[in-house]
Amino acid sequence: MVTIETRDASASARAETIISAQKVNVYYGDFQALKEVSIDIRPRQVTALIGPSGCGKSTFLRCLNRMNDLILNCRVVGKLLLNGEDIHRPGFDVVDLRTHVGMVFQKPNPFPKSIYDNVAYGPRIHKMANGRSELDGMVESSLRRAGLWDEVKDKLAGLGTELSGGQQQRLCIARAIAVEPKIILMDEPCSALDPVATGRIEELIFELRRDYTIVLVTHSMQQAARTSQRTAFFHLGELLEVGDTNDIFTKPRHERTEAYITGRYG
């Protein structure tokens, strides 16, 4: 399987790669969920992973912070380099990996604790803050970056689970940001949200792109088009096409990509 890759015009952008997947295969028991996936992910960009259900885009995303480790009988073969280091190599510290690669889930999953404790959890377990005031500062700046501060600054002690769906998802983003990751993985972060909340998250993704590398799995073509710089199209476990979002949406190379983005398939 050869992935069609549209090259960037600028050579400098090509040289920069934060994650490099090389011939990654994932098996759930006997079922092969990903086949020979190779892709480079550029820093401080939004890379959208699109494709029909069951195409393996979420599986690939979960490879990037090794959340597949949580699934029984899941096996990953191939190389996944983060800054040139293979994250599946024996002895590689997965807990350390996850401090660099944060994740936002499909359904908002704040801890059933206070808003403050939700955001402070990461810094606390990693002992990132010296003293209460520093932790307060981290919580505030994370909530600010997630665009939630003004809405919750007066009720930090309130339960995170009592916020609205969109606020919960932004709380989860703040929680991920608090650990100061370089990469944020987002697994269909808006699929459980209404259009207004979705709009806010998309704006947020757009802003966060300046500081973070974002890999976004989405079912929404519009979302991929609006928020991402690069788009990868997955189909039946294969990565069919990857390239600049503009190119993918205006002149897809692969006929299946075209069928999918125009809504004739999927």
């Binding site: 959340m67 994740m103 359904k107 999953n109 801890f111 929680r175």
Partner: peptide, 12 residues
């Protein structure tokens, strides 16, 4: 997802 959320933040 609760456990996944915690582990995604680097909790053991």
């Amino acid at each position: 997802t609760l456990l996944a959320g915690a582990m995604s933040l680097g909790a053991t």
